[in-house]
Design a protein around this nucleic acid. Structure first.
Lengths: 344, 344
DNA sequence: CTCTCGTGGGTCAAATAATGTCCCGCATAT
DNA sequence: ATATGCGGGACATTATTTGACCCACGAGAG
């Protein structure tokens, strides 16, 4: 433990840490679901109404949340407490240790783990987004260029980003690659720019362009300029998907999907498909960041969770440059477990 | 607060911090009075037997204390927990703040404050001794020369010093100046040397020596050598007393005491008497450290407590060089209060 | 508009935990 | 021997927590 105080307290007042975790959990869940009522919250937290009520009364007394007719809300000091507490809780839960082990195994600068499994609990995605947003905000400086991909997870990062006046430029990492409008890189870039008090540009590359048309498109001066800026980004935030489900979502022809499966494709990121060892087996035909550009970028941040994605995440971590991974506990456990098996 | 975790916990689990303090108090008091039984301890801590029993059962469960037929004892891990916890408790109690304020007001390097008032509770002296011993042990290095004065408080420092093998040389700061054998500087030096695994020398200067005899005594080569070593001490630990009571205890002639009172003598240290502003109004006629030698010494540590000594301590702090003060809360409050009044 | 539905807040008995109050047998020191 | 203080056991009493309701109200849907 980094903080010896926690060790002392564990011995002298074990209840303290337990209650602290309990209250943190309430605040955290409230933050993710607000506004929400007593009964609903109790049910979601697997506790009784009466017991939650006692805690809520206390937290209200401390000015951490407000109770209104529509439900409960965190106050400002509640939110700030939550952020400050996150690190402490991670250490208590032993997530800090897992983070360091996972970073070590995958050769990453840093790993952030959020409790739960995004596959089973959609709130975990929200927590992932919040954690990633917190990290990104801590790193970005005024004037930086930030490139983002599409996907629901990265969209959540934008959604969870608190409003600041940072003055950064946000760009889509790649052109449209067949997502719903809401989760496209362009949309996310615009949303993030708004939240961060910065500017953004779009990269309006039509889907499924023929080679020839693509060349023409790329050679436009305005596009050229945008591409240049994207490649000089200081930070990239991207998601990681499973190869086959992603291919289907993008409505690739069945033959192509067959082929991908045959090549052992398991992961997708940036429009590239990777096999288990991290080799690129296919690349989407669209403009933007290429894997070869990544090595010049200072901070590459991947955000992805859910046990089903564990193998994909592991593959991408090996296949392309990556500095920071924000994921959930289910993934961390799965990767740490599988890699231990390999060793035996 | 140096540790922001405490601030968070103060907000999120205040009552558990209270029980932490409570348990610390039990352990601390037990440490000072062991071996002691349930009932006696409960009475001293102003709580009921049953309530203390619940806590004791818990602490026993945690392996922090043992229960025997003669009473309760701290275990080794209990002692070490106590030491680790001391800093934390000081911060929670706000003593850390007072320490910094007092150090600022008196122009000292460091102040250590122990809760309570040595005038009313003899255990506070023991706590003073323990705190001072802890500090001294942290500073001393092998080969250092340590000079000590007499007095009950400094004697307690020796008593509370844990046994180590430091290899320091302990010397009396001044010759015998009319104390009981047990509290003389010589005796304390010997005791400390034993505890610290070092050597000691004595300075057997008879009381109330005439000028001439004193000169003869000083000129002896062995005494000369000892005096030289004393003056090159790295650290000095001394007590502070009230002038008039100290003069009476030393059985000075009543006329002399009258004179001291007339000169406004209020404090005593090293055999020197100081007035309120820190001027020396009288010096005992004995050998050893002179006030003028003090400025060459690296660490001068004063240990004294009890509200009645507050003015004396303040006077000495102004009158002669001092780096570290170990005192109790009653003194700290009194000095901080009086100095605030002066400003208005 | 009405009519749910979920909200916070009130109430009170039951269950559970904390506490006060004894008493006993046993070491230990006098 | 005996008086003292020790830990531990027992149990009634009290305090607190918890469970299980009900109610009035306001927002949002129909």
């Amino acid at each position: 433990m980094p903080n010896e105080l926690l060790a002392l307290q564990q011995l002298l007042v074990p209840d303290l840490l337990t209650t602290m975790k309990k209250r943190y959990r309430i605040l955290h869940h409230l933050f993710l679901t607000q506004p929400i009522g007593r009964r609903a919250l109790a049910q979601q937290l697997q506790t009784t109404e009466r017991i939650l009520r006692a805690e809520v009364d206390f937290l209200k007394e401390q000015g951490l949340l407000t109770i209104e007719t529509v439900g409960m809300h965190l106050t400002e000091s509640g939110k700030s407490l939550l952020d400050d507490l996150a690190d402490v809780i991670r250490e208590i839960e032993g997530l800090g240790l897992k983070e360091r082990r996972l970073a070590d195994k995958l050769g990453l600068q840093q790993v952030r783990i959020v409790p739960g499994d995004a596959d089973h609990d959609p709130l975990v995605i929200k927590a992932l987004g919040h954690s990633a947003a917190d990290y990104v905000r801590g790193i970005l400086k005024s004037g930086d260029i930030l490139a983002v991909t599409g996907g629901t997870t990265v969209a959540t990062v934008a959604e969870q980003m608190p409003r600041t006046q940072l003055g950064v430029e946000v760009l889509p990492a790649r052109g449209g690659i067949g997502e719903n409008m809401e989760f496209q890189a362009n949309t996310i870039a615009s949303k993030l720019a708004t939240k961060l008090g910065g500017t953004y540009r779009m990269l309006h590359a039509p889907d499924l362009l023929g080679d020839e048309a693509l060349q023409t498109f790329i050679s436009e001066p305005h596009v050229q300029d945008t591409l240049q800026r994207i490649r000089s980004a200081r930070m990239v935030v991207h998601g990681i998907g499973q190869a086959i489900p992603m291919a289907k979502r993008r409505k690739l022809p069945p033959a192509k999907i067959e082929q991908l499966a045959g090549q052992g494709a398991i992961a997708e990121a940036f429009g590239y498909y990777f096999d288990r060892s991290g080799n690129i087996v296919h690349a989407m035909n669209t403009v933007g960041l290429r894997v070869s550009d990544l090595k010049h970028i200072e901070q590459i941040v991947a955000v992805a969770g859910g046990k089903s994605k564990a193998e994909a995440i592991s593959a991408v971590a090996h296949g392309c440059p990556l500095h920071v991974l924000v994921t959930d506990e289910a993934v961390a456990d799965a990767i740490l477990e599988s890699r231990r098996e390999e060793r035996t």
